[in-house]
């Protein structure tokens, strides 16, 4: 009896079932809090035609950016994609489609998707290119646009600590989009810095309840810093 033990021991098992043309929702903000090993394995699997939903698309040689090298991504749904020369090339040549989405709308699309809410109204983007073609409705005299939620065939999530039941805790601002991504995958895979026994995490301090999580794998992380800025001690 496996019960609620969701731990898998290989990346192949963690991503079993992922195939061409699927939608993947990924946690992370820039290179902070990204499931590094899962992304690397998606590259090894060679699946293509992917739609990837993530705030950003990594950099050329790290994070989701590595999936651009073999042209595995067909469409990117993101709020900001500026850090990536390959991305620019493939966008300009028409190989890659991008749907730029306001950051809060993107987070809410994932949250709503995971919560069974098909669409919501928001003032964000009204009167801008983002609102073009979308239903507008007025509430209390203010116009709002309708945005549809997002779910994925897979969600890939990076946790600090996960217990074997899939309960997750994130560390510092590596939390970002990970909790929403976790709720919005048909299959949610968590790559954790540390896997602990049930009961080791304070139940009231869990960020992502295990009910959303299907598979947990122990990862190893480089944790690359995208923009290292420091101050001298005196200042």
């Amino acid at each position: 009896m496996a019960g609620f033990n969701k731990v898998v021991h290989s990346y192949a098992d963690a991503l079993a079932g992922l195939s061409n043309n699927m939608t993947i929702i990924a946690g992370g903000f820039g290179l902070c809090g990204i499931p590094e090993g899962l992304i690397a394995h998606i590259r090894e699997m060679g699946v293509s035609g992917l739609t990837v939903v993530s705030n950003n698309c990594g950099v050329d040689d790290f994070g989701l950016g590595i999936l651009l090298q073999e042209r595995q991504i067909k469409k990117m749904i993101a709020s900001y994609v500026g850090e990536n020369a390959l991305f620019e090339q493939q966008l300009l040549s028409g190989e890659l489609e991008v749907e730029l989405t306001p950051q809060g709308t993107l987070a809410e699309k994932m949250r709503a998707g995971g919560a069974g809410i098909p669409a919501f109204y928001t003032a964000t983007g009204y009167g801008t290119p983002v609102g073009e073609g979308k239903e507008v409705r007025e509430f209390n005299g203010r116009p709002y646009i309708m945005e549809e939620s997002i779910t994925g065939d897979f969600a890939i999530v990076k946790a600090w600590k996960a217990d074997t039941f899939g309960n997750c805790v994130y560390r510092h601002t590596a939390q970002n989009f990970n909790p929403m991504a976790a709720t919005a995958g048909k299959i949610t895979v968590v790559e954790a810095e540390e896997i602990v026994a049930p009961g080791s995490l304070n139940p009231a301090h869990i960020h992502t309840p295990g009910i959303y999580v299907n598979r947990v794998i122990q990862g190893t992380f480089e944790k690359r810093i995208e923009r290292k800025v420091t101050r001298s001690k005196e200042n």
Partner: peptide, 21 residues
Amino acid sequence: GPYPTEAELDADMINAGKETV
């Protein structure tokens, strides 16, 4: 808060501009 000192640097602590904070 302010940018970190070299000793305080933490990959999991960034701002919206992706700078360490």
